[in-house]
Simulated scan of single mutants.
Amino acid sequence: MNIAFSPCPNDTFVFHAWVHGLIEGAPNLNVTYADIDITNKLAAEGKGPEVLKISYGALPWVLSEYALVPCGGALGRGCGPLVLTKEKTNDPTAIAGRRVAVPSERSTAYLLFRLWAAQNVPGGVGEIVVMPFHEIMPAVRDGKIDAGLVIHEARFTYPSYDLNLMTDLGSWWEEDTNLPIPLGAIIAHRSLDKNEIAKWARASVEYAWANPRISSDYVMEHAQELSPEVAKSHIDLYVNEFTANLGEDGYAAVEALLGRAAKEGLVPEFDFAALR
């Protein structure tokens, strides 16, 4: 079976056991490691593997071909995207009409940013520039961009770039909805049995939790030069109860995010029943 997910520590931690043939009855995996912007595009173009990790923000575009798997993804609290600036300010009006770098326009981070900006930035921001997430903080630091929307381990490392935290979009979302943040979704082609995929993914998650040291070499091999301490913080933050089982709170969070985004015209309208 072909699968694509990012080389980030949470994904490699979750799928280590399945990738290495440690889950009884699960098919062998042929893995493509790719940034989430790439997997979003692969799914939208119908050229992706049978199973992919994509952003929840990209889900409405692919639901006709792919089903949401209620296991293996990333939702949580205290793990939202950040808006960073070089200027030391937390006044959102400072980025009105300014250039903002984002890692993708089909991402939860982008949807949260646009929903937040609609409430807090008079007249809206200016140009949106899409760039790989690892290039965003240097671009803000060097004055090439006015603000940056960052994800993943950037929440731990941005102080080393001498950048300012304007707002934590996760905190904003949680205060506004009292729901977790839907970040990364596991999807499976509708020709497959998504319950089987969920069973194997859940077994891989549970194996990782029971044997955290066994996956460490694999995690660090793909950790994009992160320190072991940052990689562990990344896993602790993004691999949680929602990774094992989306549950009713998880589904409610997905419906809230995508429902609001659809009303703002940020994603296509879709039938919520397709999420189940």
Rank of each mutant, 00 (worst) to 15 (best):
D217W: 03
R141F: 01
L183D: 11
L257M: 06
D249E: 15
I38S: 12
G57L: 02
K41H: 10
G265E: 08
I181M: 02
N240K: 04
K88I: 07
V62D: 05
D236L: 05
S204I: 09
L59E: 01
L246K: 04
L266G: 10
L237E: 11
R141Q: 15
D35K: 10
P27R: 03
V69H: 04
A109I: 09
A273F: 06
R114I: 12
T39I: 08
L68M: 10
K194D: 11
E135N: 11
G46V: 12
F5W: 06
T177G: 00
T89P: 06
E65M: 08
G247F: 04
E264V: 01
P7V: 02
G126F: 00
E45H: 11
D91H: 07
E24Q: 14
P92D: 10
G247Y: 07
D35S: 10
I54C: 09
F242Y: 01
L266A: 13
T93V: 14
N28T: 13
A223D: 01
Y251C: 06
D193G: 04
C8I: 11
I128C: 08
N30F: 07
S104Y: 01
R155A: 03
R106E: 14
L192P: 02
F272Q: 15
R155T: 05
V102F: 00
Y158T: 03
E87R: 10
L115Y: 00
T167P: 05
M220Y: 05
A26Q: 03
Y218R: 01
D249L: 15
